[in-house]
Design a protein around this nucleic acid. Structure first.
Lengths: 124, 124
DNA sequence: TCAACATCTCAAGATATGTTGATATATAGT
DNA sequence: ACTATATATCAACATATCTTGAGATGTTGA
C-alpha cells in the first residue's frame, strides 16, 4: 500500500504549478501561506486552478490546510517529503554503502552548502 | 531550465512500472540489469511496454543504458536522484534549520536504519 | 441582513499519457 | 546466409489529467 502513496506523491510533484507550490511552502516553513498569497506568489493562476492543485497536493499528503478566519492556510508536510525520499532510496546500499554518498551530500545542501558538483548543477 | 528537469524526473517516477524499475535499479547498483531481467523481475510486462517506460526514464535522466552483446543494460543515475531531492528541499531551511531534521533522518535510512517513526511508516 | 471577500466545486472541452499488437532492428551462434 | 534471441518503434485506441468559466459556500464587518 505504501507504493500507492509514493506514486501519488510523485504524481503531485510532476506538475509545474504544484511543484512551485510545494517549493514555496517548503520555503515558507510550518507557518504556511494563505491560498491567496500562494496564488499571488505564483503570478496569476485562476482561483479554481489554484484550488484544484492545492486539493491535489493535500490528497497526496504533501501539504495540509487549516482555516484562519476567512483564509485557508496551507503548509508543507515535511514527513511526507521525507517519506518519498526514503521510499526511493530504500535498499540503495545493499552491499554498496558508498553509492549513497552523493545523495547524502545533495540532501545536506538543504541545510548546508555541501553539494557535489554534479548535484549542484541541479539546484537552479 | 532546471525546473523542467525536475518536473520530468517526478513525472517519470509517478508511474507504477517506472517507479518499480527505478527502485529495482537503485537496488541493483552501478552494474545495472538487462532489460529482459528487469521485465522478468517486474513480472510479465510486454517488451514494448517495458521499452516505452525504460526510454521514458532514460529521457528523464533517471537511468542510463549501455549495450553488452545483444543485451542492453540499464542502471540508475544516482546524481539525478540526488538532484531531484536537492531541488525539492532547496531553501527549506530559510531561518529554520531544525525543520530539515526529519528529512535528513529519512535519507540516512537509505544507508542506516535511523528513520523517525513518521518517515518509517512510509518505507514498505 | 447585506455586501465584500476568500475559497471551493462542478461540468465541458483540450491535451497528455499509457497500453496493445504488429513490425523492425541488431547481435550471436550455426 | 539463416535462425533465434533481445530489444526498439509505430499507430491506434483507451484513459487520465489540466484548464476554463460559471456558480456555490463560508466568513467578516457595517
Amino acid at each position: 500500500m505504501e507504493e500507492q502513496r509514493a506514486l501519488a506523491g510523485f504524481a503531485a510533484l510532476s506538475q509545474e504549478t504544484r511543484l512551485r507550490i510545494v517549493r514555496l511552502l517548503v520555503k515558507a516553513g510550518p507557518e504556511g501561506m494563505a491560498a491567496g498569497a500562494i496564488g499571488e506568489a505564483l503570478g496569476g493562476a485562476s482561483t479554481s486552478r489554484l484550488s484544484f492543485h492545492l486539493t491535489h497536493l493535500e490528497h497526496a499528503g504533501l501539504i495540509r490546510s487549516r482555516r484562519e478566519g476567512r483564509f485557508i492556510i496551507y503548509s508543507a508536510v515535511f514527513a511526507t517529503l521525507a517519506g518519498l525520499i526514503a521510499f526511493l532510496m530504500r535498499d540503495c546500499c545493499d552491499g554498496h554503502p558508498d553509492i549513497c554518498a552523493p545523495v547524502a551530500a545533495a540532501l545536506d545542501c538543504a541545510c548546508e552548502p555541501t553539494l557535489t558538483r554534479e548535484a549542484r548543477s541541479w539546484t537552479s
